[in-house]
Write a protein that binds this DNA or RNA. Structure first.
Length: 478
RNA sequence: GGCCCUAUCGUCUAGAGGCCUAGGACACCUCCCUUUCACGGAGGCGACAGGGAUUCGAUUUCCCUUAGGGCUACCA
């Protein structure tokens, strides 16, 4: 039996980090087993589902490198399939029409809550006589279809990450609605649990890997498999991604969509790497690896049971490791859009060599791509403003003289090599009889307006190439 | 309220009865490299929630307590 797994996002929002992480585990499991990874879009909630969300999810999956083998399939296009199964359940007596009104349900729940009881449907319409049904229909009630859940039933399954899980039928909230209200002899819109089971059966899914927030659904779904007379697949419930407060990460926690991470300057392999590490550890204790490297060693056995808090520090570190490992040729095209968005004037073609040098210069300073804007700002602006500390450096004894010497040398020569620049610094230091620090500090201050920054010699070279060094030193000298 | 799940450094985790004086990574601190800031390198700080039981021996097994989380829809 070949392994078939799926990721089944609901297009009611952009691709969420939690969904993406579940997709990562499914992808890894499929690739590890040489199985098939399927993408199914669960859009049975027509109110909340939006095409743009579907697009966002598809784009996000692709960006992350989570390629799927089959799909995307859309539940909204498979309604007939669900209706057939609903009819089957009706025919074999495991489902029935329920005419309880919302008001009656509300009253019931309110009473249960008042008595500190768990809210649940009391199965009051489970055995209606034809006469009773006719009476409700005559009242104009539109029935839902409920699937019978026996209270004394015990549901147990062997979960691939949390071993044996047991659930009592009485804790499932009574007979479950599988089809929305419709006219008396119609089959209404199928509901989540029914659609999922029918699809998983139809698509011959062998392993259902999803977040632990689905555990109660699993109990219900197992009953549905039985009602439909089909073998139950294997389940695995992964731990949830938690916020700082230790709660399930939700849209309210700020950045949660893959899109957001992308725009913040995280790169796909780093984000995926972090998601893999959140809840799973590789047997050899490695922490930096791609999907392809992780797949052969991926195993649900090594998935942790407890939820994990999302840690920005660790993500930033992983992201920085990937960025630092990128050669300038590869990194440059990633940075250009950020520079352009910041309004920096640059010509990717004509300035290519200069941009590559700049990229090499700042690469090691970047933890996120977007940081390239602030770090390299002084290389793109016409003038700089000295901050307080920088002004102090230029005001220190000997600084003016040093800068004047440097200025003259640079006016005389339009391009320096690194060796020549170092030689020049050395020479000026000796000439002016100052400490090297004075030269370096005043030069940096004049050039960038700041006292911190990337390698000074490299910065000088780059600025001089673009004719920015001379005017800035002049400006600093007043 | 009910049910279910979970519990190792601040965080992510390794650990499947003696290998543990509990290992790694991030963060933090110190030092080195360096004109600076980063990067990089070397150290340091730092945890088995509590109580029972089983055992010659428990981080590891069992029970209870506590804490945290999830679920409790005609959403998915």
């Amino acid at each position: 039996m070949t392994v078939r797994v799926r990721i089944a996002p609901s297009p009611t929002g952009n691709l969420h980090i939690g969904t993406a992480r579940t997709a990562v585990f499914n992808w890894l499991f499929a690739r590890h087993c040489g199985g098939t990874f399927i993408l199914r879009v669960e859009d049975t909630d027509t109110e909340r589902s939006k095409p743009e969300y579907t697009q966002n999810i598809l784009d996000g999956m692709q960006w992350l490198g989570l390629n799927w083998d089959e799909g995307p399939l859309f539940q909204s296009q498979r309604l007939d399939l669900y209706r057939q199964s609903i009819q089957t359940l009706l025919d074999n007596g495991s489902a029935y029409r329920c005419y309880t009104s919302n008001e009656e349900l509300d009253t019931l729940r309110a009473a249960q809550e008042a008595n500190h009881q768990a809210p649940r449907y009391d199965n009051r319409h489970r055995n209606l006589t034809p006469e009773q049904e006719a009476a409700f229909i005559a009242e104009g009630r539109r029935p839902v279809i409920r699937f019978k859940i026996d209270d004394d039933r015990e549901i147990t399954w062997l979960d691939l990450v949390r071993d044996e899980v047991t659930w009592k039928g009485s804790d499932l909230g009574g007979d479950m609605v599988i089809s929305r209200a419709a006219d008396e002899h119609e089959l209404g819109q199928p509901l989540y649990n029914l659609a999922v089971v029918v699809d998983d059966i139809d698509m011959q899914i062998t392993h259902i890997i999803r977040g632990e927030d689905h555990i109660a659904n699993t109990a219900k779904q197992i009953l549905l498999y039985e009602g439909l007379g089909v073998a139950v697949p294997t389940f695995a419930h992964t731990p949830l991604i938690l916020s700082d407060e230790g709660k399930k990460l939700s849209k309210r926690d700020g950045v949660t969509s893959i899109d957001d991470f992308k725009h913040m300057g995280y790169i796909a392999p780093a984000l995926v790497n972090y998601m893999m590490l959140l809840g799973w550890s590789s047997p050899d204790a490695e922490e930096l690896f791609t999907l392809d490297v992780a797949a052969p060693q991926f195993d649900l056995d090594r998935v942790h049971k407890a939820g994990g808090k999302f840690d920005w520090d660790k993500l930033n570190w992983i992201n920085s490791q990937y960025i630092h490992a990128m050669p300038a040729e590869q990194l440059l095209p990633e940075l250009i859009p950020y520079w352009q968005a910041a309004g920096f004037k640059l010509d990717p073609e004509a300035d290519r060599s200069w941009l590559l040098q700049l990229t090499s210069l700042i690469g090691a300073s970047l933890a996120r791509l977007d940081e390239c804007v602030e770090i390299s700002r002084v290389f793109f602006t016409d003038t700089v403003t000295l901050n307080e500390e920088a002004a102090t450096k230029i005001a220190q004894p000997g600084a003016k003289e040093v800068l004047t010497s440097l200025l003259m040398a640079m006016q005389a020569k339009s391009d320096f090599t690194e060796i020549e620049a170092q030689e020049l610094i050395k020479q000026v230091t000796k000439e002016q009889n100052v400490k090297k620090g004075v030269v370096m500090q005043s030069l940096r201050a004049a050039l960038t307006g700041e006292v911190h920054g990337p390698d000074l010699i490299q910065s000088l070279l780059l600025l001089h190439q673009h004719h920015l060094a001379v005017p800035r030193i002049q400006q600093a000298l007043g």
